[in-house]
């Protein structure tokens, strides 16, 4: 195939022949078997390649894509920002909560009890929690801003924040017992309980 015909052939395959070129090309194909075979082969091949288009996306495709999208975003919203910087966001939130709780809850004098209060005797005015004689407190007992008198039994850990523990001779605590008096210990305790809360 001559160079000229090769160019015509490519143009014909691209569908870019002018009317005059088309005439010349058709005339040439009638004379030249090689060019004709070549042209027909490529045309046939293109038809076969085009047949490869008959596939479609698998079932559930769209749902799978939607599942992978981040939950509804708005441009530059704080939530989107947090999604892009999860660690910074977590640290920032933690810091804010930490500082605010430090200042608010360390200074309040309200007595707070964590644990099942059913078996406890609570004396709010005197800031006192009593585990009465003969009673058994099951689980961990945490008391803030109050003293704890154990006359009965505590089956678990006792933690007292800004308070004292009085253990009567008949009383017993099966777990650990600790008193927290300063802000550093208290912060450490809060941190630990945050982590272990998961």
């Amino acid at each position: 195939m001559s160079c000229e015909h090769e160019q015509l052939l490519q143009k014909a395959l691209d569908g870019e022949l002018s009317i005059r070129e088309q005439e010349a090309f058709t005339a040439h194909l009638q004379q030249c078997k090689a060019c004709k075979a070549e042209y027909e082969l490529v045309e046939h091949m293109i038809v076969d390649v085009k047949k490869l288009a008959d596939i479609s996306a698998p079932l559930g495709f769209t749902a799978n894509v939607m599942r992978q999208l981040p939950a509804g975003h708005k441009k530059k919203s704080p939530i989107r920002w947090m999604k892009q910087h999860p660690i910074v966001a977590a640290a920032a939130i933690f810091l804010v909560l930490m500082v605010s709780s430090l200042f608010s809850s360390w200074s309040t004098g309200e007595m707070a009890i964590a644990g099942n209060t059913k078996h406890l005797q609570i004396n709010k005015q005197q800031h006192e929690v009593i585990v009465p004689k003969g009673e058994t407190f099951k689980g961990d007992l945490v008391v803030e801003n109050g003293d704890v008198k154990v006359e009965g039994t505590v089956e678990g850990n006792v933690t007292i924040i800004k308070g004292k523990r009085y253990l009567a001779s008949a009383g017993s605590i099966t777990g650990d017992s600790q008193e927290i008096h300063d802000i550093m210990h208290w912060t450490w305790y809060k941190l630990k309980s945050l982590v272990s809360a998961d």
Binding site: A53, S56, T62, L69
Partner: peptide, 17 residues
């Protein structure tokens, strides 16, 4: 996201192919 879902439906076959 619903609008985007529509776009996925519209183009999924072409992009997958």
């Amino acid at each position: 996201q619903h609008a985007f879902e529509g776009l996925v439906e519209l183009y999924k076959d072409r992009i997958y192919r």
